[in-house]
Write a protein that binds this DNA or RNA. Structure first.
Lengths: 213, 213
DNA sequence: ACATATATACCATTCGGTCGGTATGTATAA
DNA sequence: TTATACATACCGACCGAATGGTATATATGT
């Protein structure tokens, strides 16, 4: 049973606070550069609480990736881009929504698991796998709309709903890399505009083979 | 004047060996998780040599990013994708070339500066800037061909040669993130296929406005 | 000889992690 | 109710190892 901590009871239980601290600090500094002490300080918790709730720093990394998957999937499932009646419009609305949430500090809109997996893919299989679940799990939430759009437009190119869903995530992840390099969000927006245009073309041109059968 | 080291003279001077060690280790473990001791061991060099050649670990990070920019720009300028006579074909050949060099271990084909900048964009402005120079510098090498192709096909959409060049790099960087999450190169290839198709559509459809003036 | 390049011993600090202890909640039973 | 018993959650001092960095010595090329 979680319980408010003694030190700062108003902030809730230690585990959640540590996961929130991890989300914030890892997005800013990276996983390795974030020490257990940093996390405890940010969470207002002691090391005892840390190692009571997590077996190791790596276990916190895995938990942070799961926490990210859970919170983001709730966030996206409640987002307004599901409203349009046409499936293609929902896909395009998703991209517009992704653009709209690019605001404020880089560490506030970039992806925790994308950063995390680049850093530890080789040294921590557990974290890598949890990140993969988050990324590809989110991608899969787009598949139904893409698939319906492909049927509606009678598309039968040499790609699939799954591959296009994954590609959108690749563009988004790459957009974040460019944004961090540029220390500015403008090129991330720019790439999402390219993605938007590319998907329009994919669904609205003679080049995307429209079968007649 | 560089000089072969005493310990392993056949491997050349310490500075170059440290930069090569950095390229390899940082791509595998990340920057923070790579210690100065690790670098020295991998390079077959002592700490004295390290701090003689680099003022600090961060300075090595900056130098490693410049080293990456130099070696990759030489590599790409000699690559065969410049051969086609049509500019659009050169752009497409570039993407095919990028696909063709996705081979072997993840740490052998992924991008040093893309990984590096995700990790330290906030904590080390010097490294961030060096990474940005490498990424956007490489993107700019594509601009002439894209621009020429846009003129040849009389394209006047709401994008530019610069933006498309950057977008290709976003896709490539994102493809590497997905590859690391999946611990496999297949989805990286898949995204480059999407990029290839998208560029074909962009240059070969009624949807890309072909002005008559 | 003299500047440069490499080697080695060493230092203060920080790291992830451990451990004994305390405070709080809950189940049981008189 | 109240006393007892036990489990859970948190605290904070402490540990050995590793960290980035320094100081000094030595080797090499001109």
């Amino acid at each position: 049973m979680p319980r408010p901590t003694k030190l700062q009871p108003e902030r809730g239980d230690a585990k959640t606070r540590l996961l929130e601290a991890a989300r914030s600090l890892i997005r800013t500094r990276g996983f390795t550069a974030t020490s257990v002490g940093d996390l405890c300080e940010e969470a207002g918790v002691t090391k005892g609480a840390f190692f009571h709730n997590f077996e190791s720093k790596e276990a916190l990394g895995v938990a942070a990736a799961h926490f990210w998957a859970d919170t983001t999937s709730a966030f996206f499932s409640e987002a307004p881009y599901h409203a349009p009646k046409e499936p293609l419009q929902r896909v395009l609305a998703y991209i517009e929504f992704r653009k709209s949430i690019i605001e404020g500090e880089l560490s506030e809109f970039t992806c925790l698991v994308g950063t995390l997996v680049q850093e530890v893919y080789s040294s921590s299989p557990g974290i890598r796998e949890a990140c993969a679940e988050s990324i590809f799990g989110h991608a899969s939430t787009l598949e139904a709309d893409i698939s319906a759009a492909m049927q509606a437009y009678n598309i039968s190119g040499d790609f699939t709903a799954e591959s296009l869903a994954r590609h959108t995530q690749a563009v988004i992840q790459g957009a974040f890399v460019l944004a961090k390099a540029d220390n500015n969000s403008r090129f991330a927006i720019e790439s999402l505009d390219h993605l938007y245009r590319d998907i329009c073309l994919l669904f609205d041109t003679p080049n995307s083979v429209r079968g007649s059968s």
